[in-house]
C-alpha cells in the first residue's frame, strides 16, 4: 500500500494507509505508530493509530514539520516487512439487542433516518438482505470482531467484522446525526460496529445496549481500576446476545462489584486468519469458552 502523507495544520502529520478499510491497512497503521513511538522523536506529543490511517501530533517549536515528515517516512521502509500479528485478548461483551432505551432514542430521532417507519435493526437487516431481524442479530453476534480504532469520544471502540468481505455488514449512518445516544449503546455505521462509551451525539444505527461499562473516569468499576479506558486497538470481541433478565442480573452484579468480564489471552496472525477465516474464528471462540 502506498502511504499518503499530509499535514493537519502546523501541529499534526496525518497519514492515510488506505482509503479502504482492511485489516492489512490496520496492521500497517499499528506497526507505523509503534515504530514512531519506539523512535522517541523529539517534539512528538500524541501518537494516534486509526482504522486505516494514523496521526502524529507534534510541537513545531521542537521539530520542523518537514524534518518530522522525513523521520516518519524513513520508518515506512523498516515496518514494511513487519509481521501482522498480535498477542491480544478475546473478550465477551453481552448485548441486549432491541432494548427499550435505544428503541426510545431511535424513535425520537426518526426524522433523521432513511427508514422513518421502522427500527434501525429492521433497516439494517433489510439493506443487508437478511429475512428477519433475528437472522440479522445472529449474523452480527455470530463472528468475532476486531477493535481497529479507539476514539471519537472517551474509549469508544470501532469494531471490524472478522468475516469474508462479501459477508460483511454495511449500513449507512443516520442522514443527520442524533443529538442524543444512550451510554453503552451498540451502534453501526459503514462497516464498523461501535459501543458508545458515554451519552451524547452520534450518527451510527442503534442495535442494542451492553450493561458492561467500558469507560469510568471515577475508576470505581473493578476491571477499570487500573485504567479508566477498557479497550485498546487489537482487542477481539465476541458479542453475546442477552435478554432483559440477564441484563438486569449483570447490572446487579456490577452494583455488588462481583461482575468480571470474560476475557482470555489470544494470539492473532493476519496470515493465518486470511488463510482460514472460519477456522481462526473457531479457535478464538474455543479459547474464550474453554
Amino acid at each position: 500500500m502506498k502511504l499518503r502523507y499530509t499535514f493537519g495544520g502546523d501541529e499534526h502529520i496525518f497519514v492515510e494507509v488506505s482509503e479502504e478499510m482492511s485489516l492489512e491497512a490496520f496492521f500497517i497503521s499499528l506497526s507505523m505508530t509503534k515504530a514512531v513511538k519506539a523512535a522517541e522523536i523529539k517534539g512528538v506529543t500524541e501518537i494516534c493509530p486509526a482504522n486505516a490511517s494514523f496521526q502524529i501530533k507534534f510541537n513545531p517549536d521542537d521539530i520542523k514539520p518537514q524534518d518530522l515528515l522525513l523521520e516518519i517516512q524513513k520508518l515506512e521502509e523498516q515496518t514494511s516487512t513487519a509481521e501482522a500479528s498480535l498477542n491480544t485478548r478475546i473478550i465477551e461483551i453481552p448485548v441486549y439487542y432491541q432494548d427499550p432505551w435505544t428503541h426510545e432514542t431511535l424513535l425520537r430521532f426518526r426524522d433523521r433516518h432513511q427508514n422513518p417507519k421502522g427500527s434501525d435493526l429492521e433497516f439494517a437487516a433489510r439493506s443487508n438482505g437478511y429475512p428477519s431481524v433475528e437472522k440479522f442479530i445472529e449474523a452480527h453476534s455470530g463472528s468475532p470482531w476486531f477493535v481497529s480504532m479507539v476514539g471519537f469520544v472517551s474509549g469508544l471502540p470501532f469494531l471490524y467484522q472478522m468475516v469474508e468481505r462479501s459477508k460483511q455488514i454495511q449500513v449507512p449512518k443516520y442522514l443527520r446525526p442524533r443529538t442524543d445516544t444512550p451510554k453503552l449503546s451498540v451502534g453501526y455505521g459503514g462497516c464498523f460496529s461501535c459501543i458508545y462509551s458515554v451519552r451524547g451525539a452520534g450518527g451510527y444505527q442503534l442495535f442494542g445496549i451492553t450493561p458492561m461499562p467500558i469507560f469510568d473516569p471515577q475508576q470505581k468499576v473493578s476491571y477499570l481500576q487500573e485504567f479508566m479506558v477498557f479497550f485498546k486497538p487489537g482487542d477481539i470481541v465476541k458479542w453475546k446476545p442477552i435478554d432483559r433478565k440477564e441484563y438486569d442480573r449483570i447490572l446487579a452484579e456490577l452494583a455488588a462489584e462481583t461482575f468480571t468480564p470474560k476475557i482470555k489471552k489470544a494470539a492473532f496472525s493476519l496470515d493465518e486468519f486470511n488463510k482460514d477465516i472460519q477456522g481462526t474464528n473457531k479457535k478464538l471462540e474455543d479459547i474464550l469458552y474453554s
Binding site: 493537519g8 499534526h12 479502504e20 478499510m21 486509526a50 501530533k57 468481505r165 454495511q170 449512518k173
Partner: peptide, 25 residues
Amino acid sequence: PPFGAGSDPSNITDACYPYGSLQVP
C-alpha cells in the same frame, strides 16, 4: 465509495481528526 467509508461523498473510513481540522459533513 471506498469499502468501509459510507455512501456519502463526504464520508471517509473513520480516521483521526487533528485539532483545528475543518470537516464539512
